[in-house]
Design a protein around this nucleic acid. Structure first.
Lengths: 201, 201
DNA sequence: GTCTATATGGGGATAGAC
DNA sequence: GTCTATCCCCATATAGAC
């Protein structure tokens, strides 16, 4: 075995462990939230020690930031892979549906509306902010197209539509419905889509 | 001055200080959230020492619970004072408008969708839960009336409507709009009402 | 690069003086 | 009933051995 292949094998193993760490971080964040999640939790779940964890990520903030970045990359990918036949509003619905399904299967909410602490932390994470802005620009264009086609209310400013859209991806009613209602995952998703675009009326 | 009146005077002063503490807790919670709010913050803002604070409230959880209870009582009062001429859906709109205005002027969100920690804590607070259930029952009736009148979508289960309603009272887009848009308080409230009942369409 | 063991700091809660 | 001073736990982060 050459040095090169050994090295690339080690890189690969290293990368896989990082993915495992990020997976554990994601599920733990979804269950406990940022403040209750400890580095011991993550180390234990992955099966490594805390110092090893710190070899991969230099701080808790860094670790959580990377998990959120991976999520945003997933959303951007989703947008890229969007069928070109879909109308603007159909694209928004598909993206929201994807985000809701991610959450309903143990994933993270899109934006951590959670605590001011987490929000500030992420605001200081340039790599994260870059992706948020990229997504925001893409969605802005789609909203403009949808308005032009009469698929979205002209009465609502773009900001209101976009922030409301983000808010639906992290809507707490999803968790409450999962906990307290007997609705299936599919039913919850469909109802949330209706509430988002048609309202309660 | 009789012992009785002296005693009642002291009670009154005691009660006023408690209100001041709860006010400070409310604004600090709204700004920092539960985890970043410290008992030192509250003591400093009220102008007393931490041990004095603990004479009034036996723990941080207790203190925050009382602040949330006061908020729920406000909501229940608001429902009682509702004009009887208002249709069911108009009542819902008035209540949501009240909740949004409370938040926009430095108050707390209705439900702290925030962190699992806070949610669990409040779930264990019987006095808080009692009020939540009371409000829930009232709103359930109003929703049923609204559906009968065709003011709300029959396609949506009651749970979906109610949880979505609660979620709108703590919708993070309100804060984002206040921060990043140039919209007035009134405009934000009106847009949020439209989004809630008519959707983005 | 992995571990055990430990430093560090913050914040909830309290002892004890006045 | 108020304060000063302190306790003490817990979680982030690291030192140092292997």
């Amino acid at each position: 075995m050459s040095i090169l292949s050994r090295s690339s094998f080690k890189d690969k193993a290293f990368k896989m462990r990082e993915d495992a760490i990020l997976d554990a971080t994601t599920t733990t964040l979804a269950i406990k939230g940022f403040d209750l999640m400890t580095m011991d939790d993550i180390a234990a779940e992955v099966g490594i020690s805390k110092p090893s964890l710190y070899k991969h990520f230099k701080s808790k903030e860094d670790l959580v930031g990377e998990a959120m970045i991976r999520l945003m990359d997933g959303a951007l990918e989703q947008l890229e892979a969007m069928p070109k036949t879909a109308t603007p509003v159909e694209q928004l619905k598909l993206l929201l549906e994807w985000a809701l399904r991610v959450r309903l299967t143990g994933g993270l909410p899109f934006l951590p509306s959670t605590s001011p602490h987490v929000r500030n932390m992420l605001t200081r994470n340039l790599r994260y902010v870059t992706r948020v802005l990229k997504l925001h620009q893409r969605l802005k264009k789609i909203v403009a197209q949808a308005k032009a086609k009469g698929e979205l209310s002209i009465r609502l400013p773009d900001d209101v539509i976009l922030f409301s859209f983000y808010a639906r991806t992290c809507d707490p009613s999803v968790e409450y419905l999962q906990l307290y209602s007997k609705l299936s995952t599919d039913a919850i998703v469909q109802h949330m889509l209706q509430v988002c675009f048609e309202g309660l009326k």
